[in-house]
Design a protein around this nucleic acid. Structure first.
Length: 234
DNA sequence: GCGTGATCATGA
DNA sequence: TCATGATCACGC
């Protein structure tokens, strides 16, 4: 049997933290440990690499911290209103990848504003956990860093809002297919799909329905690098 | 297909 | 070297 070293759902995950402080204490206890150690504790096998297990690190950390959501569209720690995000960092502590936030709505946008957007709620409170992500470090040897519990500052929220409004305006105007990852200063819109054949409905240039790739909102590395630096990590 | 977890792989 | 566009796995 090759691949599929998935999280064993039969195992009991850690109890869900009841307070923010409890969650932070738990996350801090993971700092400095390797993914190999954490996998062993959870009785989970470590894949050779992440090519076929891209979400493995995130799932492993979810297990250790007792996240409840699974694949449900609610915060990882629903009772605490906290979202968990692992972030791969390089030798200098800077993010190696953009960070997926959520799927972008492409239809039914009448009256949608930043204040009640899905993405704003998602980013309202995030527990960031940096993890060594250089591909020349064997997965099991990669270390977990110190956690950062973050909420957007007024400036950060303004940046996010501005990009979101620009992108959503284009979507409403039927220009979703003209959007590239270069739009937006801190937030990008990019494909988020099983493959390039997956299609979903969106507005066309003349208001008619079209089929297009599902898109997701991603935080650019410069933005997340700023967070980790500003509040110091790893 | 959608939403969860993301990283891969190639062209600029 | 690095970001963009593409892709992988899973539950439902």
């Amino acid at each position: 049997m090759v691949g599929s070293p998935a999280i064993n759902k039969v195992d009991t995950m850690q109890p869900t933290p009841k307070t923010e402080q409890e969650l932070l204490t738990r996350a801090n206890a993971l700092a400095g440990m390797t993914l190999g150690e954490l996998a062993h504790m959870a009785n989970i096998t470590v894949p050779a690499d992440l090519r076929r297990d891209k979400g493995w690190v995130g799932q492993l950390l979810e297990w250790h911290l007792g996240a409840t959501a699974g694949s449900k569209p609610v915060p990882d720690f629903a009772e605490l209103g906290i979202e968990l995000k692992t972030i791969p960092v390089g030798y200098h502590g800077k993010p190696l990848e953009t960070t997926f936030v959520c799927v972008a709505p492409l239809i039914g946008l009448h009256g949608l504003r930043w204040e009640n957007s899905h993405i704003r709620h998602k980013l309202a409170r995030v527990l960031w956990i940096p993890v060594e992500g250089e591909r020349d470090i064997p997965l099991a040897d990669r270390h977990v860093g110190s956690p950062l519990l973050w909420s957007p500052s007024p400036e950060e929220e303004q940046q996010l809002r501005q990009d979101w409004e620009e992108l959503m305006d284009m979507i409403v105007l039927g220009q979703v297919e003209q959007i590239t990852a270069r739009h937006g200063e801190v937030l990008q819109l990019r494909p988020k799909a099983a493959n390039s054949k997956a299609l979903t409905e969106a507005y066309g240039a003349n208001g008619q329905p079209i089929k297009t790739l599902p898109r997701g909102f991603y935080l650019k590395t410069q933005f997340t690098a700023g967070l980790l630096e500003k509040y110091f990590i790893l």
